[in-house]
């Protein structure tokens, strides 16, 4: 177990260090006021993901002093990029049915970075049920964001879970690459990223315990490091966390000396910006996976 804690710690610390070192590559190009927030290739979504990873490092409090400082600096950086929440506020006010301002805000609110006018707007949206129609796993993401921010709604997480792929307990081969991501996110949101492992119903827990080793084996063999990292997060979100040394050593072996963790087994280019663009998501995943695994092994909050 000690060896596993060290491996998980090292993967997370190096990935977080890489994100921190390269953070300026993730900034909005000119300024946030003129950026196209709907561009899936743009900076907005990666900034949200950076805030998510940082907020979980801070929440768990199991990282070393340097990592805690880097996490605090990163969430400060994303907050500054979002003009201390004004960008989210204006976007939510103008497009009341969008859920990304709330979801992005939740990570900052969790880190103590609050925006009063945005919260008032979010409360009003909740009262009106101003929310676009979403896939079931995405609906859970929004419900969890409301829960984190502290906006009361009558969301029934168990009923929402049953609408998802995972909640239906399909035959375990009825899964593809995309749906595997849906499945992982269902677990993330129901458990609030491992904080509430007991909120997974027993049949879902049994299902995940049965099949996670297989999904991990297959996608690890296929060199899908990003998805492997997500599956390791799911493993750490179970009531009895699954932390397998061999799986973690495999994940760690894919990490480069500078902390970059490639998203898959294709060659990594040399260009610094392209490297960041291609692999930043996997670094976020690795930071979260290592942080949660370490926390659960040490008997932390989650």
């Amino acid at each position: 177990m000690t060896s596993l804690v060290h491996t998980a710690h090292d993967v997370a610390a190096r990935a977080l260090g890489w994100l921190h070192t390269n953070r300026d590559l993730g900034a909005f190009e000119d300024d946030a006021a003129t950026t196209d927030l709907n561009d899936p290739e743009g900076a907005y979504k990666p900034l949200c993901e950076l805030a998510l990873a940082s907020s979980l490092v801070l929440r768990e409090g199991v990282a070393g002093t340097n990592e805690q400082r880097a996490a605090r600096a990163l969430v400060g950086f994303t907050w500054q990029q979002l003009r201390e929440g004004d960008l989210l506020y204006e976007r939510q006010l103008r497009h009341a049915l969008l859920t990304d301002p709330l979801e992005t805000y939740a990570h900052h609110a969790r880190s103590g970075l609050r925006h009063e006018a945005l919260e008032q707007t979010l409360v009003q949206c909740a009262v009106e049920d101003s929310m676009t129609e979403l896939l079931p796993n995405r609906r859970l993401a929004v419900a969890n964001a409301h829960r984190i921010v502290g906006i009361h709604r009558d969301d029934d997480f168990t009923a929402m879970l049953r609408q998802t792929w995972l909640g239906r307990i399909p035959q375990p081969w009825a899964l593809d690459w995309y749906t595997a991501y849906y499945m992982t996110h269902t677990v993330f949101h129901v458990t609030d990223w491992g904080a509430k492992p007991g909120d997974l119903p027993p049949d879902v827990v049994e299902y995940l315990e049965n099949w996670l080793p297989v999904w991990i084996d297959v996608w690890a063999e296929a060199g899908q490091w990003d998805l492997l990292g997500e599956l390791l997060i799911v493993s750490a979100c179970l009531p009895e966390p699954r932390c397998d040394l061999a799986e973690w050593e495999l994940f760690a072996s894919a990490q480069h000396a500078d902390g970059l963790l490639p998203r898959d087994d294709r060659p990594v280019v040399d260009d610094t910006e392209q490297r960041y663009h291609d692999h930043k998501h996997t670094a976020v995943v690795a930071t979260i996976a290592g942080t949660l695994a370490m926390s659960r092994l040490l008997g932390g909050q989650a």
Binding site: T99, L134, Y181, D226, H281, V285
Partner: peptide
């Protein structure tokens, strides 16, 4: 990683 934050951004 299009899903970490979600498809909301892609559908907005």
């Amino acid at each position: 990683g299009a899903l970490l934050l979600g498809l909301g951004l892609l559908l907005s």
